[in-house]
Amino acid sequence: MNENTIDEDVRYPRTIFIRRHTLITRFTHWLNALCVSFLLLSGLQIFNAHPELYWGHYGADGDPAVLTIGSEGQKDETRGFVRIAGMQFATTGVLGVSNVDGERTPRAFPSWATIPSFQDLAAGRRWHFFFAWLFVFNGFLYLGFSLLSGHFRQDLAPTVRELSLRHLWHEVLDHARLRFPKGEEAKRYNALQKLTYLAVIIVLLPLMVLTGLTMSPGIDAAFPALVDVFGGRQSARTIHFVTASLLALFVVVHIAMVVLSGTWNNMRSMITGRYAIREEGPNS
């Protein structure tokens, strides 16, 4: 037998499959997606009941609002606007005014963006509270699993090298040019992913949950200091709206990156756990 004969004919480039996401990670991810969707749509329903945000302990028609989504004029002349810190922008047809049965109707967010589609504060609150608690319990499940399994330490904690400004700037440029990791680098999260996920998990989500609890009279009675932490219930409502908006922005960017970096491969990894890696040859 020729001594150069090998048992396996390995040809490059080749595609291999790795196990990227555990069952718990995949389950909590999709449950989070469901919860966030219903929370956002029901939250906009609640916001429509009084589409203004204030800062401090109190908020009423006579107090200056940080944000207002409203309308002015009557019937066919009704125009929608968004006012932020004194600056007003026309938003007719998008925010402030919606077309309902061919008529302009004052409404902060349109019917397609709320649950239920018609104005019903009580129903919106019921939807919101149910999925809020489900979201919290799911978050504790993910957090407990991540800590016990080492998922945080192994997959989400950035290394010292990854935290260097030079490395981060290089990754920013690669993302801007739509150059995504390949081969060995694609087997793990990059630094931007790690920092973004950690910011969402450690800062954004807890802040959103705590401000949501602060708006509850029952929680205020049990933990009155929580109101003071955020400077008042109206401040908590404003922070809650901002964090929810940032979370929605995160979801939009996340979906865009999933599509641009390989829709089917990313979806398969979050459904079955199998992620395809394209390996280059040893001399590549």
Rank of each mutant, 00 (worst) to 15 (best):
L53W: 08
W127L: 02
H29Y: 07
Q45R: 00
I84D: 03
A222L: 15
H50Q: 08
I84H: 08
N138A: 05
F129E: 07
L156M: 07
V36G: 01
S98P: 08
V66H: 04
P282M: 04
Y12Q: 05
A222Y: 12
L34Q: 02
V203S: 11
P224Y: 04
I6R: 13
E72R: 14
G144M: 07
T114Q: 12
R11C: 13
P116Y: 09
G212D: 01
A33I: 03
S269I: 05
L67P: 00
A244C: 10
L156G: 04
L44I: 01
Q154N: 15
P64D: 14
V227Y: 03
Y142P: 03
L34D: 06
P282D: 13
L53A: 02
R166T: 08
H175A: 02
G124V: 07
G73L: 08
M257A: 13
Y197T: 02
L53T: 03
G102M: 04
D7F: 15
T5Q: 15
I6T: 13
G232S: 03
A236N: 09
R83M: 11
T22Q: 09
A244Y: 09
H57G: 03
M267E: 04
L226C: 12
K182P: 12
L226H: 10
A236Q: 04
A157C: 09
E52H: 12
W55P: 00
G80K: 10
A176Q: 14
D9C: 06
T214E: 05
K75S: 07
L213G: 06
D228E: 11
T214V: 08
G73W: 07
G218N: 15
D120S: 11
T68I: 14
L165G: 00
S111W: 02
V160H: 06
T25E: 10
G96M: 08
L67F: 01
L173A: 12
H57Y: 14
F89T: 06
V36W: 12
F152A: 05
L121A: 11
Q88H: 08
M208Y: 07
L134A: 10
A191K: 08
Y58M: 12
W55V: 09
V82E: 03
T15W: 13
R125S: 08
L173M: 14
A90H: 14
D7M: 13
L141A: 11
V203P: 07
N48F: 07
F241V: 01
I115M: 14
I201K: 06
R179W: 12
R237C: 05
T211V: 00
W112P: 04
G281L: 00
E185Q: 05
Q88A: 09
H128K: 05
I6P: 01
R14L: 09
T28H: 00
Y275I: 08
W169T: 13
M208P: 09
E8C: 10
V160C: 01
V227P: 02
A199F: 15
W127P: 01
Y58D: 11
S235Y: 00
D63Y: 14
H29E: 00
T263C: 00
L67G: 06
R274A: 06
V229P: 10
H50D: 15
L34H: 05
A132G: 09
G86C: 01
E279T: 09
E280W: 06
R20A: 11
D63K: 11
F137N: 02
E280L: 13
G273P: 00
A222W: 13
I46Y: 06
N283A: 11
K187A: 06
P106H: 01
G43I: 00
V97E: 05
R104C: 02
V229D: 01
L143P: 00
S98M: 11
S146A: 14
W169K: 15
D9K: 13
